[in-house]
Amino acid sequence: MRFIGGALAGPVGGGVARAALRALQDNPALERTNFRGRTVSLAGGPALALGATAGAIVHRPEHAAANAIAGLGAGAVGLYDDLVGGRPEHAAKGFRGHLGALRQGRVTSGLVKIAGVGAAGLAAAALLPRKRGIDVLLGAGVIAGAANLFNLLDLRPGRALKAGLAAGTPLGASGPLGAAGALLPADLDERIMLGDAGANALGALLGTAYTARAGTFGRLAALAGIVALTAASEKVSFTRVIEGHPVLNAVDQWGRRQEDSNNSEMSGKPAESKPRKPSPYPRG
């Protein structure tokens, strides 16, 4: 039965992602300007969240509730931040900025996203095997941490999806793989972007797939790696590391529009493939 689910998961994930993209991509409310001034659609985010979640449920129906909560929960709060995060009342920088805004009586979209992804990770982990308290907490950390890590990777067209394909293949996560593969050409061509909705959902689902297979030590090791990479991202640009490694750079550039290859910002800060929201305020 699992073999049948695994065989169907990829096509289901890809089919649902394509159908959702067709339904959403002409919505003007989802149009944004990317890092090179090109108009793109945020429809890729919810399309990926829906397709990857549907595929994951078909693949592992015994973990249907965990996958639904992780994928749709992380995707929903990410989409909320994508849509309203540029408004003045949501302006904040970093986790400390969001907490500072809360002390001032403002609940920012970034804080909603942080809390929502954390809650989704905790609920999903509690529904997976190994229900001891320490295992649930470690699993929640892996799921929420992976969601955030993929969001940090989503700085160039196709990068987060390529990372998802690389991470999902050894996990056998055929549902997310099908959705990621279906949307990769449009992402590389800069017709869509994942935004927080897609990147968070993809990371959360891959984190769920890993957590479902891992024991206490495996969860601890994965969480330590995620924390280390997240901390490193505060000091070192992922883009600079990738561009400085010939193999990683070749993979990163594959399939992308040629003019993007020479588009590093003069400041040295990586140009983000994130939506520029219609506001002069920075994102948190």
Results as ranks from 00 to 15, higher is better:
residue 99 L to G: 09
residue 211 T to G: 08
residue 247 V to P: 02
residue 101 A to M: 13
residue 146 A to T: 10
residue 74 A to E: 01
residue 71 G to H: 06
residue 246 P to C: 04
residue 24 L to I: 15
residue 30 L to Y: 02
residue 43 A to Q: 00
residue 186 A to L: 11
residue 173 A to Y: 12
residue 103 R to L: 07
residue 131 K to I: 06
residue 101 A to F: 08
residue 238 F to R: 05
residue 121 G to Y: 03
residue 64 A to G: 03
residue 205 L to S: 09
residue 46 P to A: 05
residue 155 L to C: 03
residue 234 E to V: 15
residue 170 P to A: 05
residue 12 V to L: 08
residue 35 F to H: 14
residue 140 A to H: 07
residue 142 V to P: 12
residue 7 A to L: 15
residue 125 A to M: 02
residue 61 P to C: 05
residue 130 R to A: 15
residue 76 A to N: 14
residue 74 A to D: 04
residue 12 V to G: 03
residue 83 L to N: 05
residue 99 L to R: 15
residue 260 D to M: 09
residue 133 G to R: 00
residue 258 Q to M: 12
residue 162 K to I: 05
residue 99 L to M: 12
residue 16 V to K: 08
residue 173 A to P: 03
residue 51 G to Y: 02
residue 63 H to Y: 10
residue 93 K to I: 14
residue 168 G to P: 14
residue 59 H to G: 12
residue 193 M to K: 00
residue 246 P to I: 07
residue 47 A to T: 08
residue 71 G to A: 12
residue 270 P to N: 09
residue 144 A to M: 01
residue 195 G to S: 10
residue 128 L to R: 05
residue 241 V to S: 10
residue 37 G to M: 11
residue 223 L to I: 01
residue 125 A to F: 02
residue 81 D to Q: 11
residue 121 G to T: 03
residue 204 A to G: 07
residue 281 Y to P: 02
residue 98 H to I: 00
residue 145 G to P: 10
residue 278 P to R: 10
residue 172 G to Y: 02
residue 168 G to C: 06
residue 11 P to K: 07
residue 58 V to K: 13
residue 244 G to E: 03
residue 250 A to T: 13
residue 98 H to E: 04
residue 95 F to T: 13
residue 97 G to C: 01
residue 134 I to A: 15
residue 155 L to R: 13
residue 34 N to P: 04
residue 277 K to A: 14
residue 65 A to T: 06
residue 165 L to Y: 12
residue 108 T to A: 05
residue 224 A to S: 10
residue 263 N to W: 07
residue 93 K to L: 12
residue 77 V to Y: 00
residue 109 S to E: 06
residue 110 G to F: 03
residue 29 A to D: 08
residue 266 M to L: 01
residue 90 H to F: 00
residue 50 L to I: 13
residue 47 A to P: 14
residue 202 L to V: 06
residue 74 A to F: 00
residue 59 H to V: 06
residue 241 V to T: 15
residue 165 L to R: 02
residue 284 G to Y: 12
residue 91 A to W: 03
residue 76 A to E: 03
residue 45 G to P: 08
residue 217 F to E: 11
residue 2 R to V: 03
residue 224 A to R: 10
residue 90 H to N: 08
residue 276 R to P: 01
residue 190 E to W: 09
